[in-house]
Design a binder for these strands. Structure first.
Lengths: 82, 82
DNA sequence: GAAAGTGTGGTTTAATAAAACCACGGTATC
DNA sequence: GATACCGTGGTTTTATTAAACCACACTTTC
């Protein structure tokens, strides 16, 4: 993937994660406990700094109590081929 | 994540990928060209042998012409906390 | 039977995600 | 001001993904 689009995709994912976490009124540390993911990394996910694996995505979805696909439920306009 | 659930999640993902690829009547090699992903790895994804990153998931979604969340659109019963 | 396409499975390298840490400054709450 | 929680950002190690190859057996088509 072109690195620009990859970056954009990760940022979009991060926004969804951030939105869902805030909707549940969870702090980074609180979500970390629910997810079994180290708290210091969740912000990195939300900023799009990490290209996470789907296993970790599943962890986050479980902790948030949402279906995994919700974390990818963002506008995809930027993804289309040129 | 417990390794059993992780494995199950990856297998579920693989099934979605396999279903969508066949629905488009694409061979591994044909999809590989569309995705810019090496053909020899797509079957590994479909078998749940790889814990792929979301960047690669995006690649596959673009190649298949579906929204990324479609690749995670599987039953999630097995994901619930005990 | 030669050529082309296919599924399958193995290997190797470099890049990087996962995971676990830590430390700092800020903000409440007592 | 002590305690507790928070966001932030950095580091390090290990595991593994990504990516690129290859070879083989099987079909199908010419």
């Amino acid at each position: 993937m072109q690195s620009k689009k990859k970056k954009e995709a990760l940022v979009q994912f991060g926004k969804r994660l951030s939105y869902l976490r805030k909707a549940k009124k969870l702090s980074f540390r609180q979500l970390a406990v629910l997810c079994d993911v180290d708290y210091s990394n969740i912000k990195k996910f939300e900023k799009g700094e990490k290209n996470i694996t789907i296993a970790t995505l599943m962890e986050l979805a479980i902790g948030l109590g949402v279906h995994p696909k919700e974390l990818l439920n963002f506008p995809d306009d930027f993804l289309h081929r040129d």
